[in-house]
Amino acid sequence: MNASLSDSFRKTIKKDFHQWLVAAPFVLPGLVLVAVFVIYPMIFTIRIALSEYQIVRGTITFLGLDNFVKIFSDSNGRFWYALRNNLLYGVVTTPLIVIMGMVLAYLVNNIRRGSTFFKVALYLPVITSWVIVSLVFTYMFNNSDRGLFNYLLVNVLHISKDYIPWLLREWPGNFAIWLMGVWKNVGWAMIIYLAALQGISPSLYEAASLDGAGIYAKFRHIVLPSLRPTTFFVLVNMVIGSFNVFIQVMLLTGGGPNGRTSVLQYMLYDEAFNKFEFGVASAIGMLSAIFIVALTVILNKTLKLDTVEDGGAGA
């Protein structure tokens, strides 16, 4: 009894070891790099989040949850504004990106000639670097009549009487950040949808055509239902993306005024690299990781049900 137990145990170990030996040449090179340059730094960050980190002296004093208390109890509520803005960014830009991406993909897919041209041209914003895009947007949203938007609104269209200081106000600033997010990501959603559309069997269209369905009817009854899984994918990506907004905030508004256009990543950067508050910054990093994971889980739970149960029914 005893012998056979330890025997089977030894066997398992031996089997495990053999498996590892087989997998090692493949997995190990990547694993070593990831462990050293990604996982170790992450563990370090978690540790710092619970400590006071004196960066020059390299001393790390354990604090417990003090950094988190500090974040939540800040009298200006900067953290809450940042969190609000992350969520708003997701809520505002995601539907626009999904709808516009889907419509553009449908159009490009149905055009007789020039689909390649439109596909590439509409994808350009996606491959343009965030830094470059931010520089252009800063210029276009310039606060005076030198800015394109102000010029159009005031001097050309006469919609507004005064020049709007776009990047210096809470809502105009957020608007600029959202607009840039939409502009930058629509092309990406379009490409994803395009791939999905090309996967729809042509026979479905033919059948619908025979029934006399027009473009709109086809879209409504064939395309839309088939795109559900893709929509879910785009949605998850955009939601996660809305917690990674950073460069545009840094370069467009710098979080101003009074942190009202800030987001978590920018706040993290500001705390660490401007104020030496590495503990607080790490804590913010942890919190945003928790939000991302929680949101992904929630999205999965709610949307999965949806797609699996009536995804094929065509609603």
Binding site: W20, I39, P41, A281
Partner: peptide
Amino acid sequence: IKFKGREVLFRIYLLTLMVPGFLNIIP
């Protein structure tokens, strides 16, 4: 290749993709 701990390891990889990597630069 099947090996013990494969799923856990893969989930850790997945997790690293969700965590902001900004502060990693110092370590």
